[in-house]
Design a protein around this nucleic acid. Structure first.
Length: 560
RNA sequence: UGGGGCGUCGUCAAGUGGUAAGACACAGGACUUUGAUUCCUGCAUUCGGAGGUUCGAACCCUCCCGCCCCAGCCA
């Protein structure tokens, strides 16, 4: 169904905001942020969060900042920052001048740490990583205090300053919040808030050798930016008490509130950064923008539109239930968009030569065809017809089953936008028995209507004039995995769909598509939606990616 | 089982004490020069289970069951 764009979505987060607005909690202010770490490309799960955060800002006339959460230099890079910026813009969102980096707050965050030490709420711990883990306890046993827990403020200040100055080796000391080693929530057992890490940062270079941990940096970054709603995914629910603990101690006035929602899971693909990286690095796909990837860049290259992705995000809703969204919904959303906007064209994937015996040898007719069957405003184009054509191999059967409406011995069929033709004979390969060529005759009176004698012609098939068609490479994509929830399998690579990509090199598209614009989508009638590949298309030599197939009720009938 | 969270149609998801929205999927049918689109129709006497409160419960209470998250100097 088409979304009513005048009505805003509703969900538990918006309910909270509505309540806050009623009580004027933040003086009517609504400020969100989207905080990706620049260590990978964003995917459709991020898109859900982008739509949520930017969508809320738009709906309530508030703001949404883009903040790169770059507190761990390992793996972070400008390449990822740029891709993230590009992808979010492409999705249709704007942060104006509010592009921020957690790394820009390093000095301020450091000062906050000093403040925490001074108030007796943090200490430098000199245990080894193993020892810290040891003393942390388990789910059922409380932890034990670090022997360094009661260092004096002066000593802590001195040590922390020297940590920053680079006097110690990586891992020699950490700064910890002094909370409660017996807390039932493990997050609260004196969490580490600063570590020494001699790793050059893509933005701050070697200026810092200590970096704040997520729990410390994130809430303070939110506060620094005046965020009112810090929306994140469910796995951070355990961290919320720490978020509040820090903010309560260091921030006066407006304090941001963390709200968690369930992250997106999509069937037949994986959405965790770790797994996506593995797919790329181990060469299971051809890169982050492989059209089979659920990344925004992959979806874009596949031919998905921002509208379809936004609509998908609106349809799935926002809640706290773990979910596994049927990829059929995503496919529905792109079909819905492309059905309305993509111009139609004809293309033969698996060509079968057809000679129209009663058509003059050198004649060529140009048929004026609608670019869209329901929308005349999309105009028309000319398609050449001649004696020799290509049709789809599937559209001819020597021994057709019942209900098959296409071509076969003794049968007639309508050529889309053209004449009705009748089967006359076929030429077979002597050795293999394969049908090499069909001979048909056409009925010249059927161009603009059904046969005058009332004959019923049920089938309509697509075609391309052999001498006019443009050879094209067409890539047929299918789901990347063969099981619904590969993300739940430890050895998920085992379930890759071996047929997720089929490359066809003997296809013919109508000549109008010879110089089709990279990135543009078309509906190849009766086949599906296709997108001109933006990377591998060369002048006059188009490469198409299949976005999604058309719904195919024949396929269902044929199965039975 | 120490803490946190979640259980409403195959998949999502509304519903917040007044008698189960919607979407996708699926199944029929109409129309059709795309077996597409569009259009009709059907699709939870029941809300994880069992008790209880109430005139009335998916919504309140009790107990039970199941699933997810947390023991990175990742985010």
């Amino acid at each position: 169904m088409t979304q009513d764009t005048t009505s805003n979505p509703t969900d538990f987060i918006r309910d909270i905001i509505d309540d806050d607005l009623k009580t004027n909690k933040n003086n009517g202010k609504v400020a969100t942020r989207f905080p990706p770490e620049p260590n990978g490309y964003i995917h459709i799960g991020h898109a859900k969060s982008v739509c949520l955060n930017f969508g809320i800002a738009r709906q309530y006339q508030g703001t949404c900042n883009l903040r790169l959460d770059d507190t761990d230099p390992a793996g972070e890079s400008m390449e990822f920052v740029e891709s993230i910026i590009h992808d979010i813009r492409w999705l249709g969102f704007d942060w104006e001048d509010r592009l921020f980096y957690a790394s820009d707050y390093f000095e301020k965050i450091y000062q906050f740490a000093i403040e925490l030490i001074k108030s007796g709420n943090a200490y430098v711990c000199s245990l080894s990583p193993d020892e810290i883990r040891e003393l942390r306890g388990t789910f059922t046993e409380p932890g034990k205090d670090s022997p360094y827990r009661n260092r004096t403020i002066e000593e802590n200040l001195d040590l922390f300053g020297r940590m920053r100055a680079g006097e110690f080796a990586d891992g020699a000391h950490v700064l910890r919040a002094k909370i409660d080693m017996a807390a039932p929530n493990i997050v609260m057992r004196d969490p580490i808030i600063y570590r020494i890490k001699r790793e050059p940062h893509y933005r701050t270079g070697t200026k810092w050798v200590i970096y704040p941990m997520y729990d410390f940096a994130h809430c303070l970054s939110d506060a620094l930016e005046g965020i009112t709603y810090s929306i994140c995914t469910l796995e951070f629910e355990n961290n919320r008490p720490l978020y509040d603990w820090i903010v309560e101690r260091l921030i006066t006035g407006l304090r941001p509130r963390q709200i968690e929602f369930a992250r997106l899971n999509l069937s037949y693909t994986v959405l965790s950064k770790r797994r996506l990286i593995e797919l790329v690095q181990e060469g299971h796909v051809k890169g982050w923008d492989d059209p089979r990837m659920p990344t925004v860049t992959g979806l874009r290259r596949r031919g998905y539109t921002p509208e379809a992705i936004r609509n998908f995000c609106a349809q799935i809703g926002v809640a706290k239930n773990d979910n596994l969204i049927d990829v059929a919904l995503l496919e529905h959303c792109i079909r819905e968009d492309l059905n309305e906007h993509a111009p139609r064209a004809m293309c033969v994937l698996h060509p079968l030569r057809v000679v129209i015996d009663n058509y003059p040898e050198n004649q060529v007719e140009q048929f004026e065809c609608a670019n869209h069957p329901q929308n005349p405003e999309m105009g028309t184009r000319k398609i050449p017809f001649s004696k020799v054509l290509y049709i789809e191999q599937d559209d001819f059967m020597e021994n057709p089953p019942k209900k098959y409406h296409r071509l076969g011995p003794g049968r007639e069929v309508r050529l889309r936008n053209s004449y009705v033709i009748k089967f006359e004979s076929m030429v077979k390969d002597d050795r293999t028995g394969n049908v090499l060529e069909l001979h048909c005759t056409y009925d010249p009176d059927t161009l603009n209507g059904p046969p005058a004698d009332g004959r019923k012609v049920q089938g309509v098939i697509h075609w391309v004039s052999a001498q006019h068609g443009i050879p094209a490479e067409i890539r047929l994509y299918d789901r990347l995995f063969s099981i619904e929830d590969p993300g739940s399998e430890e050895n998920f690579v085992k379930y890759l769909n071996p047929n997720s990509l089929e490359i066809l090199t003997t296809c013919y598209v109508e000549q109008n598509l010879k110089n089709a614009e990279p990135g543009n989508q078309y509906q190849f009638e009766r086949l599906g939606y296709f997108c001109v590949d933006a990377k591998d298309t060369a002048a006059g030599k188009p490469v198409f990616n299949r976005v999604v197939q058309l719904r195919d009720s024949w396929a269902k009938i044929a199965k039975n």
